[in-house]
């Protein structure tokens, strides 16, 4: 790792100010992605601004039909939040499958979304649940937030402060783990909104990061059951292909994981 300057922010405003002072600053939340990248000397921020201890950025709120997860809430705290487990269990389940226990104690939803790793879990939930990403400047819809591999709509210095999820009628997440990294080789989040809309998002599969799967959405809208997908064939076009999974295999996994997610959703 190159030498850097560490700053612990006390508030969102403080964080933004610290960021602006650095010539090439980066925000640090749980650090479970940024620090490995810095260790490999693939990132060299002059300053890192730590958001993890800003009180206003931590916590899970459930009110009416909306769940709000503050951006610096760790995966562990999301996974074990009893209100969330009751209201949106698929999301708690997803958080409990990220990385490993030690990573879940440190990693945060804001960090995961800002990084937008194509194999990260949260983006699938955010896209499928049509969540809204809140920053210190604005609100960004899920559709507008993800812009491809490791790319988001966030502007320089913009801080994700929270993510709000409309509570769905049904939702489920199924993930097939990458044999080495344990990221999602392919993970699929299925959600049926209270108005009956169906959204399905797959992570780990596409060359452009998290993606919606219209063919599966249509089939599930017609018939919310795993068997409704039996005849579906997902196209392998644009899917990633590597030593752990060819594109046609990932296409198959999208279907199979979607079926399992529907079964889990009930």
């Amino acid at each position: 790792m190159y030498e850097t300057h560490y700053h612990r922010a006390s508030s969102v405003e403080d964080a933004a100010a610290l960021f602006a002072k650095g010539s090439d600053a980066k925000f640090l939340a749980g650090g479970q992605t940024l620090l490995p990248v810095m260790k490999q000397r693939l990132a060299a921020p002059t300053d890192v601004v730590d958001l993890a201890k800003i009180p206003a950025m931590i916590g899970v709120e459930v009110s009416g039909d909306t769940v709000t997860i503050k951006a610096a809430t760790t995966h562990y705290d999301v996974a074990t939040n009893t209100a969330l487990q009751k209201t949106l269990p698929a999301l708690a389940h997803l958080a409990g499958m990220i990385g490993d226990p030690a990573v879940r104690y440190r990693g945060t939803i804001g960090g995961s979304l800002a990084n937008n790793d194509p194999a990260a879990d949260y983006p699938a939930a955010v896209l499928a649940l049509n969540a809204t990403v809140k920053t210190n400047k604005r609100s960004i819809s899920a559709e507008d937030f993800f812009k491809g591999l490791f790319t988001t709509a966030l502007e320089d210095g913009e801080i994700i402060t929270a993510v709000s999820f409309p509570v769905p009628a049904k939702a489920g997440y199924a993930k097939f783990r990458h044999p080495a990294s344990r990221f999602a080789l392919t993970g699929v989040f299925v959600a049926k909104s209270k108005s009956g809309d169906v959204r399905v998002a797959a992570t780990g599969a596409s060359q452009n990061g998290v993606m919606r799967v219209p063919s599966i959405e249509q089939a599930l809208k017609a018939n919310w059951s795993a068997s409704a997908l039996d005849g579906i064939k997902v196209s392998a076009d644009g899917l990633m292909s590597d030593i752990h999974g060819a594109a046609d295999y990932r296409a198959n996994l999208i279907k199979v994981m979607a079926q399992r997610a529907v079964t889990e959703a009930g």
């Binding site: 044999p179 080789l185 030593i243 999974g245 295999y249 198959n252």
Partner: peptide
Amino acid sequence: ATPDRVWHAIHGQ
């Protein structure tokens, strides 16, 4: 015999 290879072996591709 990764899942990818086994799946391909099952499905003949």
